[in-house]
Every structure is written in C-alpha cells, then in structure tokens.
C-alpha cells in the first residue's frame, strides 16, 4: 500500500491574504504616519498644508489627522506617528504629549533652539524660518558691492548671539558693527552709532527690535543716512528695506516633505535645527534706485544666490 505523501497546504490564499494585509497595512501606515498639529487654522497654515499634502502625495504618502489645537483638545499622539507641528506652541504641545517624532515647521530659530534645548531624547527636528546669515550676507554683497560693514541691532530676544553674528559677518568679509538695544527709545541712537557711510543694516527677526512699532524709525533713520536695510520678510521689503531673502510656507512644506521622505522610514528623519533650503528674494526697486544701488532683477539675484550656494 502506498501511502500518499501528505500534500503541502495550499498557501495561495494565505499569500494572497498576507499580501492584501501588507498592502492594507502599508496604505494605512502611509495614510496615517504623518499627522499635522497646528495652533489655529489661518491662511499661513492653510498655505503650508496645501503645499505639504500635495508634495507628500507625490512621494506616495498622505497626511493623516490634522489637528487644529485652537478648536479641538490636544490629542494623544499615536505610537509610530510623525507629528508635523506648525509653530512654537503646537511643537511644544506635541512634545509635551509624548510624541516620539516631531518635525517643527514655521518656527523661528530662537523658539526652535529653546524647544530643542528641552528635547533631551532627540525627538525634535525643526526647519526654521530664519534665513542663514551667510545667505543674507551673500545677498547683500551682490546687491551692494560697495558696502563694507554690516550693522546689526541686538535685543534681549536676539535670534543669534553676538559672537555668532560677529563671526558670520567677518567670515563674509564685512566689518561687524553690533549694538545692543534694551529699550525702544534706544533704537535710533543705536542706529546712529552703527550706521557708518559704508554700512548696511541687517534686520533680524527679533521681536523686541524689529516690530511694527519700530519699523518706521528704523527704515526712516537708515534712509536718512542713505544706508540700505536688508529685511527678512516680504513685508519688510515692501515697507522700505532694499531687499530680503525669505521662505514661503510652500517652500518650507517642500523641504519638510523632502526631509521626511529622504529615507524609507519617515520617522527616521534628520533631527536638529535645519536652515530653510528653498528661498525667494524680493527687491524694493524704488528704494534701491533711490539709494543709487546697482540695478538687478529679483530673478538674477536669486540665480546668483543659488550659484553662490552651489559653490560653497
């Protein structure tokens, strides 16, 4: 009698089921691995979100939950999720809630540094809004080749320490002229001290110095001395700074996507404080002409700035 060898079990269905499960799991994981927390839903946040969802989708991922912390209670972060937090407050809440991977965007360097200092376990990465000083100084060099010194007003809440600024300015070939300002009334006298005939003023995102109440004094005083001001936002350029380099929420969204998808595991994104990579420039041509600066278009300036970055 011949015993029939037992037939191996038919795994086709199992394989099919396993495949389906994997696909489902992958799809589910892709759909839910990135949550967005925002402090409120404003135009800025919507601009970021629209660009971020679009860019992420192109990479085969989707945004999961979107939490508007202004209208809903703070959620509990799901394990294994990346939380993209918009701004300082949302980032702080995500970290406090125990999230294991937080990418902070639309955040200033000063706030990102403070958050990072408290992040002992390395959960936080941040793409800051502040443009790197060397990039801003390179722009100044292109715009105003005759400028030899760079004036900076430093407040108590300065985004960069004086030593780092001095170093960056000297490294770019300029003479630093720094003045510390503690009260609004000191701004004009401080400007008078640092604005030499060969200088330009580098405005910094320091809320104690460069705010809507002081912008008029700063721009008018600088203009009175016929010295250019390098702004840090399109609004500052529109107000009267000669030029500025900045990143839009869409630029930051693109970088966030590239950062997250640079590796297979989205959670393994690079931590730490990251400069914005994608940027735009704005020139106030009327002010530039009035100060007698060489004429240059925004496109040309950006191209030359990109060339400079590529050559670093």
């Amino acid at each position: 009698m011949t015993r029939r060898r037992p037939r191996p079990p038919d795994l086709t269905a199992f394989h099919l089921l396993f495949g389906l499960w994997l696909m489902l799991a992958w799809t589910l994981s892709a759909a839910g691995v990135v949550d967005v927390w925002m402090p409120r839903s404003g135009a800025l946040q919507q601009e970021f979100l629209a660009a971020f969802e679009g860019a992420l989708k192109e990479k085969g991922h989707n945004v999961g939950a979107i939490h508007d912390l202004g209208v809903t209670p703070r959620p509990t972060p799901a394990p294994g999720k990346v939380i993209v937090a918009l701004g300082r407050d949302a980032t702080a809440q995500a970290l406090d809630a125990g999230a294991t991977a937080v990418l902070s965007v639309l955040v200033s360097r000063r706030d990102a540094l403070a958050l990072h200092a408290d992040d002992a376990t390395g959960k936080l990465g941040a793409i800051v809004l502040d443009q790197p000083i060397p990039r801003r100084l390179a722009m100044l060099r292109i715009l105003a080749p005759d400028v030899a010194s760079v004036a900076v007003l430093l407040g108590i809440s300065a985004p960069e320490p004086a030593a780092a600024l001095n170093q960056a300015i000297e490294a770019a070939g300029f003479t630093p002229r720094l003045a510390t300002v503690e009260r609004e009334q000191e701004i004009v006298p401080a400007l008078e001290r640092v604005l030499t005939p060969d200088s330009a003023l580098l405005a910094t995102p320091d809320p104690g110095i460069f705010n809507r109440d002081t912008v008029m004094s700063i721009l008018l005083t600088s203009y009175r001395h016929r010295r250019p001001v390098i702004g840090f936002t399109p609004a500052y350029v529109r107000a009267g700074a000669v030029a500025g380099v900045f990143s839009t929420p869409a630029d930051i969204a693109l970088q966030a996507t590239q950062l997250l998808t640079a590796q297979d595991d989205l959670q393994a994104f690079k931590r730490g404080i990251l400069d914005p990579e994608h940027f735009r420039v704005a020139i106030n041509q009327r002010v530039s002409r009035s100060l007698g600066l060489p004429e240059i278009s925004e496109d040309t300036l950006r191209t030359r700035l990109l060339d400079w970055e590529a050559g670093r």
Binding site: R88, I156, P205, D213, A239, S290
Partner: peptide, 23 residues
Amino acid sequence: SGSSAIHAETAESLFYDDIPIVL
C-alpha cells in the same frame, strides 16, 4: 518686557505679519 516695545507678536509671526509701508 526688557524693552518698551511690548508686543504680543511671537517670533514666528514676525515673519508673516504685515507692517506699515514706510518708504
């Protein structure tokens, strides 16, 4: 509070808030 330029502006709002046109 160290400065008299007391503002509710956060550092990040500085980057996108509108300011008066001066020049």
